[in-house]
Design a protein around this nucleic acid. Structure first.
Lengths: 137, 137
DNA sequence: TCTAGGATTTGGACTCTGTCTAACTCTACG
DNA sequence: CGTAGAGTTAGACAGAGTCCAAATCCTAGA
């Protein structure tokens, strides 16, 4: 198990062709040191909690940059906001609708079979499997 | 194949415990007569196109009411808006990321196997499978 | 028919997420 | 040092969706 440090983050950013600035390192660290799914808003709170200031614009810019560069993944389960997932490997999601808690489901044992052929001229970008659960009444 | 009329809609609403008002009938008709996935915005445009006026608040109220009553389903694929799906039977979705087009995948032949057991005290609300595709470059 | 009261609808203000822009800062390099 | 280009910033803005108090629409009963 790797221990994530801010230095690691600089490395990580460089390997993804991203110029490691202070803000970018802090944001990457926020995402990777926890293994959680965070919203832009949560990222901003975390980052501004310890280290000085990072603006909203930068948080969004940076998250979108990370996204483009394939460093993180977007998870769309909540109609009101996007979550960002530092785990880009294949896996699925469990979404607790009451609490908004989002957790991973390992892809290892899950098989999805029988999907129809794609329409001509189309290629798959990704397959999202979301299991929505709630507390039993 | 059923032909959807406004009268049918009144029936349909009643069977779902919804008091059929003018606005509700128009909104239901918009959704069920096309078999499409519509955003709240699109519903409003369609409804206000022919018949007089329905306010934004009513459109949202009504869609949420339909949702609660299990008349329609919510499809969350686009970070910026929710789609409403008149088809509540089991099926999956194909989402074209460039164009925003959303189409159904019949559930008949699709098998999802090996999902881990749910955490204790949780029950499944639904399983969403979304295949994201794009036009091949 | 008339009317009271609950259900429904409405406009408009408001919130929240996310984007845009133009100015500002930083840094690397000559 | 001085400057160009990348990065950051505040704040204005846009769009989806919610909220609320007031207006309107039924409908049952007199």
């Amino acid at each position: 198990m790797i221990h994530y440090s801010r230095d690691n983050m600089a490395e990580l950013l460089r390997t993804h062709d991203i110029n490691p600035t202070h803000q970018r390192i802090e944001i990457a660290y926020a995402l990777f040191s926890r293994h959680e799914h965070l919203s832009a808003d949560q990222v901003m709170t975390i980052v501004n909690d310890r280290h000085a200031e990072t603006s909203k614009a930068t948080v969004y810019n940076t998250l979108n940059l990370f996204l483009e560069k394939g460093l993180i993944r977007e998870v769309i389960v909540d109609p009101s906001k996007v979550f960002y997932d530092p785990n880009t490997g294949p896996h699925h999601h469990l979404y607790e609708v009451d609490s908004g808690r989002l957790t991973d489901i390992a892809a290892d044992d899950v098989r999805i079979e029988g999907l129809p052929a794609l329409p001509k001229g189309m290629e798959t970008v990704g397959i999202d499997l979301i299991v929505r659960v709630k507390r039993t009444a």
